[in-house]
Nucleic acid binder design. Structure first.
Lengths: 224, 224
DNA sequence: TTTAATAGAATAGTAATACTATCATTTTTA
DNA sequence: TAAAAATGATAGTATTACTATTCTATTAAA
């Protein structure tokens, strides 16, 4: 089986659609590698330009600034995630099993697809963990929010929140619980790697630890 | 009643202790105001220097860079928070009431103390909400962690985690739950203000909403 | 009381960042 | 085959994140 997944990333996020050209795809792919390697603060268009042997000016033809490029990458991730959720929940009808599948997705690396988007999924995952909150923790959040750049994230949240309401229609905070689960899944993974004293991780598998913590948290909270 | 609260902020965070001089205290106080106003990314030592009518070079005599200054401010906050927790829990012995008091603290503005530290507590609170994760979401986290700059945060977490274990000794994730509560309290307040669709906030009091969400989450999760 | 150390002000300078602008050249498309 | 679009090459600007030096005022130690 081989198929292509494609989704439109909000066109306010780029000046020129990077999906349409070789260079554009190179920019995004190498941006993921470089942001992973350097961290978002140390990442610059200059360094990216050197990496792919082009010029800063050329990269500015695709993206206004590095913040928009980060948002572009995250939008791609959230859209892909929503697709994966949809895909994995197909033919499931037990709400509990569906929610377990969602938590498994949130705490696993993205599957490696072939084809057009050969982004490094491990790096992408790590970027989401370490950098995604920098996309919204900015002073001009209300300005950038007007361009609907957080729509894929909101859509994913609302899809998961619906599953929670399906499981327990009386639970009062389905969206807040969803964002808490998602953000906590990132944090706990980050803490487990970097500030383990802030977690209860034990030496063994960290992903398993985060997974069991979140499942416990979720199902106790929405118990009928 | 009038008393002075004082705690030592880790001396690796400054070149010269700002608490010892008028200028030093001015730097910290105005840094809080400016970071609140501009956001951490737009905040620079140059702008701060202009604000307090001194020079960049002088500020560099106190702090190596703006990241260390942010850490200094956050360390002050976490130490103060731990003091407040200790203070509020005095003479309480019911673990449930203690935990409720902690959540109330996490979702309230800091009390305005008089005296030496007339930092704007509302601004400080907002900085913790919007900027604190930028203190640890950096590439060189393991380097800076060696200087124990996260000790006050870890101490506070461990104090709260102990309360959870006191309430339910069998609960397996007291630290992870604590960090989730703390970070979620920031996130949900931020989202309620800026991306309300990611929460279940209704028009009325946002602090009350976050508080009831967190209490519900906490006590359901640690139910015996 | 003189000396010496320190704090801060003033100024200058550097490398890097985050862009913008222009123009020539190559590639694509009509 | 001409026109349009994409890219490369180069240059330039304001700002940032520092470092260094020199001078003066203040304070502390000998």
């Amino acid at each position: 089986m081989d198929f292509q997944v494609s989704f439109n990333v909000n066109n306010k996020l780029f000046v020129k659609d990077p999906e349409n050209t070789d260079l554009g795809r190179q920019i995004v792919k190498n941006a993921i590698d470089l942001i992973y390697t350097l961290g978002f603060e140390q990442f610059t268009f200059k360094k990216l330009a050197i990496e792919i042997q082009t010029t800063e000016a050329t990269i500015y033809r695709y993206f206004e600034n590095k913040h928009k490029l980060l948002l572009y990458i995250l939008n791609w991730y959230w859209s892909y995630m929503e697709f994966l959720v949809m895909f994995k929940l197909q033919n499931l009808d037990n709400p509990e099993i569906k929610l377990i599948a969602v938590i498994d997705l949130l705490t696993s690396d993205l599957p490696n697809t072939s084809g057009k988007f050969d982004y490094n999924k491990k790096y992408l995952n790590q970027i989401v963990i370490s950098e995604s909150s920098k996309a919204y923790l900015v002073k001009d959040i209300s300005e950038i929010n007007k361009d609907e750049v957080f729509k894929p994230y909101k859509d994913l949240c609302s899809k998961i929140a619906d599953l929670i309401s399906e499981y327990n229609p009386k639970y009062k905070f389905p969206k807040s619980l969803t964002t808490t689960l998602i953000e906590s899944s990132h944090q706990q993974q980050f803490f487990a790697d970097n500030l383990p004293k802030l977690t209860d991780v034990c030496e063994v598998n960290q992903k398993d630890f985060v997974r069991s913590f979140l499942k416990d948290l979720l199902f106790k909270t929405i118990l009928i």
